[in-house]
């Protein structure tokens, strides 16, 4: 069997590849406006994948994941606006992206060292501590004149892929869409291979029983710390891509509100799969876009109730449930629980 035949023998791979091909073909059927919208939602999708990595695969639920998204967004904005101390006027998108990966990763690593080591925080405590961290970050950003304070930073330039003074601004809907989509696919491939590696198995072991995994000789804190760091870097990357499209960064991007929103996207989509979380973010945003005008405040009411039902009856998420059915090897009965 050739390598590609082997790859496509797995129904998961076939389904995932089909979905990505679908995204590649999307601009063929949609207008420019919709493509721009979806390009923006793709960045939310990347953000959702980063949360699914630590939540679904490592058991770390966080009520403050937007901290990393926001840090990435601010890092990108400050560097592309040429506001970095010592590097004034230096407006490289590459530098911005590098910082948007590095700053959240370093912050997450330090925070993780503080929270996981020593006596270590357990599930709910971590969730609420991260909530407090998100509120602190939002308040501090709102009071920091350098980062624009309450008003945030405006007219952030789009991604510029040019090197050595050449300008290749990615601004038109189609190039923008494909740039973001390729970024999403790259993130997906990297994270998916992490999840399917031995390290991924250990991560899920930590999620299901940390004490037992530690008894088997794994350094569970290091596993959690590395997952947390990688996830933060990906969230920061998503933030950078988002702000380059949106052109505007403000304190709510780093705060509690967005943190809970991403939690809902991932829970509705399905936290145990990267792709289901990704699709969850995009579908909820699309639905919000069309239904929020139609229903007004009732939309959020419905979303809240749907979320409650989903948590109680479909812990794998709406899409996760469908995805599991679709990707079960032929002839296996669904046993209900994994």
């Amino acid at each position: 069997m050739t390598l590609s035949a082997q790859f496509f023998a797995d129904r998961r791979n076939r389904t995932d590849a089909l979905i990505w091909v679908g995204f590649l073909a999307l601009p063929l059927v949609l207008g420019e406006w919709e493509v721009t919208q979806i390009a923006q939602y793709l960045t939310y999708g990347i953000f959702a994948m980063s949360l699914a990595l630590i939540w679904g695969h490592c058991g770390l639920m966080s009520f403050g994941h937007a901290v990393f998204f926001g840090l990435g967004a601010y890092a990108m904005s400050l560097s592309t606006l040429g506001m970095l101390p010592g590097l004034e006027g230096w407006t490289s998108s590459y530098l911005g992206i590098a910082l948007a990966l590095a700053v959240p990763a370093v912050f997450a690593n330090l925070l993780g060292r503080f929270l996981f080591y020593g006596r270590g925080l357990q599930g709910a405590q971590l969730a609420i501590v991260m909530l407090a961290v998100a509120v602190i970050a939002e308040r501090l950003m709102a009071r920091w004149p350098y980062a624009g304070g309450m008003n945030g930073l405006m007219s952030v330039p789009p991604v510029n892929l040019g090197l050595f003074g050449a300008d290749i601004e990615i601004f038109d809907p189609l190039p923008l869409y494909y740039l973001t989509l390729f970024a999403a696919i790259a993130v997906y491939i990297i994270l998916e291979s992490l999840v399917r590696s031995r390290r991924g198995v250990v991560m899920r072991a930590v999620a299901s029983d940390e004490a037992r995994t530690a008894f088997l000789g794994y350094d569970t804190r290091a596993v959690k710390l590395s997952a947390f760091t990688i996830s933060a870097a990906v969230a920061g990357f998503a933030g950078a891509l988002f702000v380059a499209q949106f052109g505007f960064v403000s304190p709510p991007l780093i705060g509690f509100g967005l943190s809970t929103e991403v939690l809902i996207w991932v829970a509705l989509g399905g936290r145990h799969g990267l792709l289901t979380a990704f699709l969850g973010a995009i579908i909820v945003r699309l639905a919000e876009n069309t239904l929020a005008d139609l229903l007004g405040p009732a939309w959020l009411l419905g979303l809240g109730l749907l979320f409650v039902l989903c948590v109680i009856f479909l812990p794998r998420g709406l899409l996760g449930e469908i995805y599991t059915r679709l990707t079960l090897p032929r002839g296996t009965a669904d046993t209900g629980q994994r």
């Binding site: 009520f63 969730a127 939690l263 009411l301 109730l305 749907l306 409650v308």
Partner: peptide, 15 residues
């Protein structure tokens, strides 16, 4: 399902 109580009650709070 301890952690799920956070999520479900958060949904209720939104509603």
């Amino acid at each position: 399902r301890f952690l799920d109580t956070i999520l479900a009650t958060w949904g209720i709070s939104i509603a």
